[in-house]
Design a protein around this nucleic acid. Structure first.
Length: 142
DNA sequence: GTTCTAACA
DNA sequence: TGTTAGAA
């Protein structure tokens, strides 16, 4: 099938499908007119690519392990493949660290927010939601 | 009408 | 990633 059909079926833009090919994730054959011709498994692979990208894996890693991810009723199932487990664990560790950093940021923001809200002079501003709209503009007084 | 490449936002 | 220009 041609690129427009794959884009419709997968919900992935033509631009992205070409990009995935450029990254070595897909290998559609070329027709005589230069058009890309995708197979059924290509369309399925696109779903797997989306799943792996959503998991945070870089395209370079996906290119290495995509061929050993098989489809099990709509679901991507990674099977034994050199590096598969270590890649997944590495990304898992990365997300854990990111979560820790974000929690620290959240804690710092809570502290800052609490201190700011103790300032009487900012209460009226908060009540009118001024900081959420145009910071520089002032509402005309009735 | 559909796709391609290249390049800019 | 989206969009667009120009060619096939």
């Amino acid at each position: 099938m041609r690129i427009s059909a794959v884009a419709r079926r997968t919900g992935v833009s033509q631009r992205l499908l070409r990009y995935y090919e450029e990254q070595g994730l897909l290998r559609p054959v070329r027709l005589a007119n230069g058009y890309r011709e995708y197979t059924e498994s290509d369309a399925i692979a696109v779903g797997h690519i989306r799943a792996l990208l959503a998991a945070g894996l870089p395209t370079a890693v996906i290119a290495q392990v995509l061929h050993c991810v098989h489809d099990e009723d709509e679901r991507p199932v990674p099977s034994m493949c050199p590096g598969m487990i270590s890649h997944l664990r590495r990304e898992r560790a990365r997300t854990a660290e990111a979560i820790t950093r974000l929690q620290a940021s959240q804690q710092a923001l809570d502290t800052l927010l609490a201190a700011a809200l103790r300032q009487p002079d900012v209460r009226d501003e908060v009540e009118r939601g001024a900081s959420e709209r145009s910071p520089g503009r002032r509402e005309p007084t009735g």
